[in-house]
Amino acid sequence: MAELKVVHYLNQFFGQVGDEDEADLPPQRKEGAVGPGKALNQALEDKAEIVRTIIAGDDYFNENKEAAQEKIREFLQQEDVDIVAAGPAFNAGRYGMACGGVAEVADELGLPFVSGIYPENPGYEMYKQYGYFIETGDSVGSMRQGISDMADLIFRYFETDGSPGKPKEAGYLPRGIRKNFFREERGARRAVDMLVKKINEEEFETEYPMPSFDRVEPKPAVKDLGEALVAVVTTGGIVPKGNPDKIEASSASKFGKYKLNGVTDLTSEEFETAHGGYDPTYANQDPDRVLPIDVLRELEEEGKIGKLHEYYYATVGNGTSVSNAKAFGKAIGEELVKDGVQAVILTST
């Protein structure tokens, strides 16, 4: 029996339970290592061993985050465990979000967490401060390298007593945490050195990289809207009455996806706003004022748009962090593309 005990989290697919049809699976446990866990176990040699694998469906985790986290918390508390591992999740958005959700639980329980992820996976941006993520490629093709990097980081974590060092040295993706230290030279001298390099067009390294402000090239126009599948998305918090997903009034941590089949008009009996940042009276009286379904149905009828997509997406833009908003946008965008949508109307309050 190895000294260090590892609990490993996998989704339904890598946990070998099933495909998308099992995506609704609530968290469950299996003895020992499963799937990629077997390779990880090997890479961990005799120093650490996976004692338990927790498996959950990606949809279940994302749609019932709190319940999933609660269950995983319970599992972890019952276990004699030194470190939690997850994935790698590559660029699978929902899997990455689930691994991140597990990181959050581990962090709360004071357990170290190691996973592998593709840097553009929204799970990384959203949960990076809760654990250590090594960088993988965007597909399962990078599994072998990912597993070996995860094992190395686990070794390093324990060898350094929980201070593995800087991201580059230790081989993990930056966690977005700023730490103070004393540099060799005073600030003013460093500033002048940097200025000279900048003037001479030599390479220099900023001490505080600005948060990124990437722009996106405008997509070409839709040629024939009369044939196109159009979707609507809102940050104005329009949800079915009762707010079934409990989207927060501010600092939203999630978005909702709701059926529009048979809906020709948003009425105050069936819909309302969950947004806490503006006076809800008008939106509650007539939710079309934020999400114009009545007019879109007419335009659909008139042939100005081909078809209105059968779902709409909603979240609350009030105080919601950039990283959350980004993650929502990415997840929604991917789903819409998959569903064959060709154009999107996004409304904001």
Binding site: K219, V222, F328
Partner: peptide
């Protein structure tokens, strides 16, 4: 931006 990045106007 993220939705547009995914490929949709």
């Amino acid at each position: 931006k993220e939705i547009e990045k995914a490929g949709l106007p």
